[in-house]
């Protein structure tokens, strides 16, 4: 494939197809990710939201090639013309940082406590042979780009001398250093106040618009998603339950889980009551419920079950038979909008 092809010619930059990740558990293998599919277009931002523990970080780790050693994978990770899942370890190391970079969710756990921040964020240019005297100014430039005040002094700091939000920005600087085409950003702004957050998001948007850098953005902050994401993927229990253009999904979610999330976002400019949490407990990938994994907690199945005669025991909340027995496929409900719910339809209003 020649380098001068435009994004339109090459299709999505990253195409995740039926990705499965299985880890050994005490009671046998656990399928942490179950047939996860989505794409990230060149110069676009795909948002990834979902329940805590639903597999967002695991998805990013699979793409960057840093899954636990005992993980088994299936499916395809199409990166331009190659499949990363079958690439050699050498090739994967080459991709990591230079073509695809990651901003890790836990900055403190992923930074080296014994090395200065300046040294760590210039690791890739150093390995690629940048002369010593340029490394110092590169470190300062990078820290400046991520809004660290007094960057020349700060480059000499160790991670413990940074605040939580400064470490998070150092992770972003590290990801930018290799000039990647795709950035996997796992919760990059949770430790930033809203003004710094706005500047970092603007920086990422500029990278997208001016250099065509694509991004997979993992965040629990739906307000951030609404402002930054082009496309949105929603995960529950290791599966994709909804995907589509971000503004549409957030304005009118098709899947009941997405709907519950959108309704739970606290308002800033008006006082809102704490939302009703979903009933029941989060799905455990080791014991994924039968049929639709969301059925024990789904408000919609209870509505759909009313008036339908089924074998529900007296006293238990009604569950529609189909939801209990048949796993919903991710279907295209309307052009570009996909949902994994038996009852999602263009007409359904909630």
């Amino acid at each position: 494939m020649s380098a001068d092809m435009t994004p339109e010619d090459t299709g999505p930059l990253l195409d995740v197809r039926d990705l499965e990740v299985v880890l050994p558990g005490p009671d046998g293998p656990v399928r942490i990710l179950d047939r996860v599919s989505f794409t990230v277009g060149a110069g676009r931002t795909t948002g990834l939201i979902g329940e805590s523990g639903s597999g967002k970080s695991m998805t990013a780790m699979a793409i960057i090639g840093l899954l636990p050693r005992d993980a088994q994978t299936r499916g395809e990770l199409r990166w331009r013309s190659e499949d990363l899942l079958t690439a050699t370890p050498r090739r994967r190391r080459r991709v990591r940082g230079r073509e695809i970079a990651m901003i890790f969710q836990d900055p403190l756990a992923s930074l080296n406590p014994g090395q200065t921040i300046g040294r760590q964020i210039t690791e890739i240019p150093r390995r690629d042979g940048m002369p010593r005297r340029e490394l110092g100014s590169t470190a300062v430039d990078l820290l400046e780009r991520v809004e660290i005040p007094d960057p020349a002094r700060r480059a000499n700091n160790y991670p413990h001398q940074f605040s939580g939000g400064m470490r998070q920005r150092a992770m972003t600087a590290l990801a930018l250093a290799g000039k990647p085409q795709l950035i996997l950003a796992d919760e990059p702004t949770t430790a930033l106040d809203v003004t710094v957050q706005a500047r970092i998001l603007a920086l990422l948007r500029r990278l997208r618009d001016e250099e065509g850098t694509a991004m997979l953005l993992v965040s629990h902050d739906l307000r951030v998603m609404a402002h930054v994401a082009d496309d949105l993927v929603v995960m529950y229990a290791g599966q994709v339950c909804e995907r589509g253009p971000a503004p549409d999904v957030l304005r009118r979610p098709f899947h009941p889980y997405t709907n519950a999330l959108v309704k739970s976002v606290p308002a800033v400019h008006a006082k809102s009551a704490i939302a009703d949490p979903l009933p029941g407990s989060p799905a455990n990938p080791a014991e994924r419920p039968s049929g639709c994994a969301f059925h024990p907690r789904c408000p919609l199945t209870r509505i759909m079950a009313q008036g339908v005669s089924s074998a529900n025991a007296i006293g238990t909340p009604p569950i529609h038979e189909r939801c209990r027995t048949e796993q919903p496929e991710v279907r295209e409900i309307s052009p570009g909008r996909w949902s994994a719910c038996h009852f999602s339809s263009e007409e359904a209003v909630r």
Binding site: I49, G50, E51, S52, Q105, G164, E187, T190, A191, H220, L222, A260, L261, S264, V265, P266, I274, A275, D276, P277, L278, P282
Partner: peptide, 13 residues
Amino acid sequence: DEAVSALDVSVQA
């Protein structure tokens, strides 16, 4: 200290 920052909005609630 940022005790609910890594939680989805439903678990957070």
